[in-house]
Design a protein around this nucleic acid. Structure first.
Lengths: 363, 363
DNA sequence: GGCGACACTTGGAACGATCAACAGGGGGGT
DNA sequence: ACCCCCCTGTTGATCGTTCCAAGTGTCGCC
């Protein structure tokens, strides 16, 4: 084992002693005072180069790492970001949350934060969770993920002056003043539609969610505007249904019978799976006879034998943005933008009719 | 708003003051000393009933909650359980991890713990993560989830005397002495096989993973033994492939051609999806012509038009067991069992040939 | 009435870090 | 030669809780 000084990522080969070393221990070994060691960690610029090196060596030799609790107590921070991890959404093909959490964990780590999960099946439980964590100063900030109509969580957190960033726009609440990060769904469906237009399709159908869902209407507008920009009619080419495979399959059947579209853009991969199902039943080849594009790039889309072309949300970027805004918030720096809107990409696979797309990505 | 005293779940309607109340504030209001308030929280038995009530009322009125950092510092605990949240496994139909994390979060909450996520793409990064969290006393214990052959994480944690519980048996390391909780995969596939046998199938094929995967071999043994218990031959009925849809589809095609099975038991839903694909191509109706059973009860299984019968791991129970063992470990109580093995259930859907199963569950 | 046992309560110290304020040394300007 | 200030590093106090050992009151018993 080398004895050279290493940085924060140091991993000692020896077992942890019963009581880990403290700042004072390191100070004594390095022949300096506690505060100097503290400065070596938090304000290295204040130290002379040789002193800094000496302290760092002592830190490395002893395998010292600052006690979290003590630091938290003194600085009134925790370096923890709270995230409600509600009940698993079984029964849908959507694993967006999973991917997002991964991205958030990584982005947080880079910014020196960790992610703390807490349960909460409904709004009341969620608020109780927020309240407990806030009162006990267990977390520095929150990330909230569902910003559906009238969600009381954002309003409650705002009232408590708790720092938080939302993944998702405050669709119905124009008075909301909290920072948010979201993905431009309309841009995604426009991308999908233009991808199909570029291949000569003119009768491109839409299968989306019910009208009261603002996210669904947003995605729909991308298809709608892309069509009309080309002077193409959308009459009879749109359907609004529940987000289930069966609904998607039925809607596709009806549209095929009544309007003879050559391509489908869907508000979700779940609906797109329904379309694929109908195509199979009718012996129509996805990609060759009829093109299909989904939304979310779910596991099903990736894994299916006929790869499903799908709009992919840049969740990694979303997480990075959220952490960035959170950082500004916590350092009392002004947050320039109220909201950040990111553009998704299109993952092209066989179902949209491009021969051997080899997982191409269009932007 | 009522002014009656409420318990720990109290949610105040008023915004949080700039500085939350402390133990001393509550003590002053209740006309007692700090220690008495502390006892009211941690050792209520020590207080006279009327004093306890008075203190509790003050706590409720002020919306007091003990400062986490101070408590952690003093007691050298954090009430946090560390869980590595590695890279998302895209490209498989498996969302087991997601469901497990949810269960763990809920079970932890009930036991007074929270779950802390940290990244780590490979073993080295994971160990670095463990090391940092341990040295800074940021977590009380760990839960580790992948116990594949030669995983150095368990050995490292053992060497550091860090409390941890593994989800998964230490398959290859018989010297391992750490506690673990796992699901009996063989029992699951036996359940699946016997379910098919009960419906008159005798030529039941197996599609599993490569031989070097002990989990796959375990699951295979359940099918194998169930068949032989009935005096049925398994010759030519087994296939070992990669865990992809395409591999499953190819294996199914070969088996159908060469051995004419009437049912398939698969080591994963991913492979089962492949089987379904081959059936579609060959115009064979799943459930009616050929029965199929998967493993993991993934979203795909639940969501597919032809519901996929699948073995479901009792992840909720796994989480509860893990937290229980963790609790014993942290309270220095002896842990009776080295390992806990839980039995999965079978979720019956259309693909196994039962008419209108209506999501029945067999145990 | 006094004494001891018991039950409950109290003030002081400690956990380990950071904040605030200050001490000594050296260099530059007047 | 003097003053001042910057640079570097030190000391005492503090965050809010729990542990420790001693204090106070009440009660029963002789």
């Amino acid at each position: 084992m080398s004895s050279e000084a290493r940085g924060a990522g140091h991993v000692s080969g020896v077992p942890l002693p019963a009581l880990p070393p403290t700042l004072a221990d390191v100070a004594e070994r390095a022949g300096v005072s506690r505060q100097t060691v503290s400065n070596a960690l938090n304000n290295p610029d204040l130290l002379r180069a040789d002193t800094l090196a000496r302290v760092r060596q002592a830190i490395a030799e002893m395998g010292y790492s600052p006690n979290r609790a003590a630091r938290n107590l003194r600085t009134r921070t925790s370096s923890l970001i709270g995230l409600r991890f509600g009940p698993a959404q079984e029964g849908t093909a959507n694993a967006t949350m999973d991917r997002f959490v991964h991205s958030l964990v990584e982005a947080s780590e880079l910014a020196g934060y960790h992610v703390l999960l807490f349960p909460g099946d409904d709004d009341d439980e969620a608020v109780t969770g927020y309240d407990n964590l806030l009162r006990s100063t267990a977390v520095d900030a929150f990330v909230i993920t569902d910003t559906y109509l009238g969600n009381p969580q954002a309003a409650w957190l705002t009232r408590q002056r708790a720092p938080f960033v939302a993944f998702g726009r405050p669709w119905h609440d124009h008075t909301a003043r909290h920072p948010w990060v979201d993905v431009d769904g309309a841009a995604g469906t426009r991308l999908a539609t233009e991808h199909l237009l570029a291949q000569g399709h003119t009768r491109i159908a839409w299968i989306g969610w019910r009208k009261d869902n603002p996210i669904g209407e947003d995605r729909r507008s991308g298809w709608f505007n892309a069509m009309h920009d080309q002077g193409l009619s959308t009459t009879g080419l749109a359907s609004r249904v529940e987000d289930t495979i069966n609904s998607g399959a039925e809607a596709a059947a009806v549209l095929l019978d009544e309007s003879e579209p050559t391509a489908f853009v869907c508000a979700s991969d779940t609906l797109a799976m329904g379309v694929l199902h109908t195509l199979w039943i009718r012996q129509l080849a996805p990609g060759t006879d009829i093109a299909v594009v989904g939304f979310d790039d779910s596991q099903v889309a990736q894994v299916f034998p006929v790869g499903l072309t799908s709009v992919r949300q840049p969740l990694e970027d979303v997480a990075v943005e959220i952490v960035r805004v959170l950082g500004s918030l916590l350092n009392h720096q002004p947050v320039q933008e109220r909201g950040v809107l990111l553009t998704p990409t299109l993952v092209v696979r066989e179902s949209s009719g491009v021969a051997d797309p080899a997982e191409r990505t269009a932007t």
